[in-house]
Design a protein around this nucleic acid. Structure first.
Lengths: 232, 232
DNA sequence: TCAAAAGTGTTTGGGTTACACCCATGA
DNA sequence: TCATGGGTGTAACCCAAACACTTTTGA
């Protein structure tokens, strides 16, 4: 059995990470422009081989950390892609993750990939080919995000700590790819008591300033543990 | 790059398949009693290494076919487990699938595993340890089934072609682990027009015989393509 | 005639939807 | 004063939930 099975220990496994961000009403994905063969010059999802002594989830957070310097970020496994022939180097299986980060132009310092990493609008990727089977991976992850956001309020991971209800609504509209009614959205969001009014307002906007809110994670978790069901 | 990355081609990947069946009001899982080390004598999920020229999904259906002789069966990938040290032979990642089959005592012929394969009630597995991390895999797959059945009518995959509404209700109760109201259940199920009344009845039962129904897959798919939303 | 499961409608309450106008601010 | 987005309430409708008795069959 031991010798027999050695033949099977010839696979590489990578993690590819669909890193979502939200900025000015647009959902974006952090991509890397490939500098080497194959697929030189195409956008690709950040990813890496998993190390021998590394759990899959650790690999996913490592990739994220190396690219953005961010830690403690929402991360979720989606699905594993393993079609024969999907990678020219040999049999490579890829475990797809997505993560949600707050885009902040000043705090994120892409390190080793600095020149080539870039936030790209999801909308712009609709018809442009990515490297490998990354279009399929992106689709799967975006769909997973869409599902998830209906049942867990993970959208807040994409917003700054203080946000307006309109920003929140735009975020949900971007993820769900649907228009939402302003009054109904506010009623529903506020009726779940985990969005708290900060009694602060926007400043320097050329219109009536909006109130700022924050997400109260503790209150939310109490709801969940009481069997509360979040639905948008 | 090529030499460098050879170090990474040392993983084995297996597929483990949680095969669900339904029988007399009980959800069951097809398990194998291990005859070899490690975990000798414990129940384990049927699984195998994926071959070098085999897609992941193919491996999953192969496992199912070798065990049951069944083909064209509902099969869904759930998640990949890859904790370091979860397998004594080396780094083994496992892609978990679940599948749904119609238990039929006469048509299923477990072949090579015949002596050791057995349908086990899910309820009986609650507190008994399975081999490897198979308890975690089973949990993940059962949860996936629970989610899925709320939004796609996959429950029919577990029933014989002709079934009574009570059987259908018991199936949903077993999957959702909840009691359902008989009248509400029937109203809802029948209001979705893809359950058709066969105008036949049970025979030989010691009570009023129930009507038999069948699932009309074509009608269902028309609903889905029209954006219909199945919810239980 | 008894046991056992099949079959059947109505009411109530809560939640979702649809919808339009005034407000506060900076330019 | 104008342009821009912020902020607010009500009525209609639909769907989910709760609930109990009669029917049909075999034993």
């Amino acid at each position: 059995m031991a010798e027999f099975s050695q033949d099977f220990f010839k696979n590489a496994v990578t993690v590819d990470n669909v890193i979502f961000g939200f900025d000015e009403s647009d959902l974006k994905v952090l991509l890397i422009k490939r500098g080497t063969e194959p697929y030189t010059g195409l956008w690709a999802l950040p990813g890496d081989f998993i190390y021998a002594d590394e759990n899959i989830e650790n690999a996913a957070s490592r990739i994220l950390y190396e690219l953005t310097g961010l830690d403690n970020v929402y991360l979720e496994q989606v699905r594993t892609f393993g079609a024969v022939g999907r990678h020219p180097l040999g049999r490579v299986l890829t475990v797809a993750y997505f993560s949600l980060v707050k885009i902040n132009h000043y705090d994120v310092h892409p390190s080793s990939f600095a020149q080539t990493a870039q936030w790209v609008k999801l909308a712009e990727l609709r018809n442009s080919p990515l490297a490998f089977d990354h279009n399929a991976i992106l689709d799967a992850c975006f769909n997973a995000l869409k599902q998830r956001v209906r049942v867990r309020p993970i959208g807040f991971e994409l917003l700054p700590p203080k946000f307006t209800l309109t920003e929140l609504q735009h975020l949900y509209e971007a993820i769900l790819e649907a228009d939402l009614d302003k009054r109904n959205f506010r009623k529903k969001i506020l009726s779940m008591d985990f969005i708290v009014d900060l009694n602060e307002s926007q400043e320097g906007v050329a219109h009536r300033p909006a109130r700022l809110y924050e997400f109260d994670k503790l209150k939310y978790e109490k709801f969940v543990s009481e069997g509360f069901n979040f639905e948008l």
